[in-house]
Amino acid sequence: SPEEIKAKALDLLNKKLHRANKFGQDQADIDSLQRQINRVEKFGVDLNSKLAEELGLV
């Protein structure tokens, strides 16, 4: 269901964000992850996106 997909995506992105902060990645990478999280919260996951591929939806 779209809600489950959204939850999985947010979980994955939050893990990536945590790792980025923990290991001191570029601020641009961290900002990009934050924008992705905001986009998923607002609009859900686009099944044509790279994120959908990472989640194994495509």
Rank of each mutant, 00 (worst) to 15 (best):
Q25M: 13
G56R: 06
R39E: 15
H18R: 12
L57V: 07
L33D: 00
K42L: 13
N14F: 12
K16D: 03
K16E: 06
N48F: 08
D26V: 08
Q27M: 10
Q27H: 08
D26R: 07
F23C: 13
L13F: 00
K50R: 08
V58L: 10
R19N: 15
D31M: 04
E53T: 09
R39I: 14
E54R: 05
Q27G: 07
P2E: 11
Q34A: 06
L17G: 00
L55P: 00
L51S: 01
S1D: 12
E54D: 07
Q27F: 09
Q36P: 00
V58Q: 11
K6Y: 04
L12D: 03
A52Q: 03
A7W: 06
A20L: 10
Q25P: 07
E4F: 11
A20R: 02
K50M: 11
K50A: 14
D46G: 04
F23K: 11
K15D: 10
K15Q: 12
K42W: 07
L10G: 01
G56N: 07
L12W: 11
D11G: 04
R39K: 13
K6F: 03
G44H: 00
L17W: 02
E3C: 10
P2C: 15
E4C: 14
F43R: 04
K8P: 01
L12C: 09
H18A: 15
L33P: 00
L12A: 07
V40E: 01
N21A: 11
K6A: 06
F23W: 12
S49A: 03
A28I: 09
H18T: 12
E3S: 10
G56F: 06
D26W: 04
H18Q: 14
I30F: 04
S32L: 14
I37S: 01
K6M: 07
K8S: 06
E4G: 09
E4S: 11
E53N: 08
S32T: 12
L10W: 00
Q27R: 07
K15L: 08
E41T: 09
E4N: 10
S1N: 12
A28F: 09
N38F: 03
E3H: 08
I30W: 03
K50T: 12
L51V: 05
L57T: 03
N21L: 15
